[in-house]
Amino acid sequence: MLRIDGITKIFGGLTALEDVSLFVNKGSITGVIGPNGAGKTTLFNIVTGLYTQTSGDVYLEEKNISLYAPEVLAGLGLVRTFQNVELFGQMTVLENVMVGLHTKSKSGIISCSFKLPGQIKEERYIKEKALHWLEYTGMADAAEIKANNLPFGKGRLLEISRALAVEPKLILMDEPAAGLNSRETSALANLIRKIRESGITIVLVEHDMELVMDICDSIVVLNLGKKLAEGTPREIQENPAVISAYLGES
């Protein structure tokens, strides 16, 4: 589904990623873990077109997407959530998800201004679909709440709802469990499994090891910008290099 091929990213003098390659199988949940500053978010920023890599390539289903802009990638079915929750704060929960349907609709400025018949139909479709995704993630009750007024955990859930509205093939989630309590985290685990069962491939950056080991099919470990190890959760837990990287950190 996703192939990352020899990605290097240098910020000024700092090498945030060095020759990182990895492969994400279609329909899998792949975990990306590593200590703070390992380069996990940087990797997501490159894959989603927000940063340009210094060298290396990214392929989505054999298509080289290295230089694609985020909005183009959304159209191709690649979407993400953010570590520092990036909601549309002044908009309602429902409107947030409706923005997720942007690629599923096409009325332009003229047909929107004049409310042409096609636009009215499309608007109804957008609203119905958005409500569907809120029900899917169990947020329908909060539809009319302003996103800024949501409790933190709900904000993370809204980001996932909004991403689902794009009807992606692949979702990258950057620390979806950060700041969640244990009940919210186990609900999240179930939701992620449900999303995978619907045929969507997932890449997950997460510090919550219990969650990662529980739901991931395979795991990639980054440390100081380099790939340290990869394998099944079991292999990773027993890998001496990984253990020392994590022990060395704390």
């Binding site: 985020p70 990036e86 909601l87 549309f88 923005v99 929107c112 499309e122 909004r162």
Partner: peptide, 25 residues
Amino acid sequence: NLSQSRIGRALRAIHDSEVAARVMG
């Protein structure tokens, strides 16, 4: 009309978080 359409929402989305708006397409 425009402000209540997908274009209006996209504009407000850009206002609140341009990065997230782009990621949403």
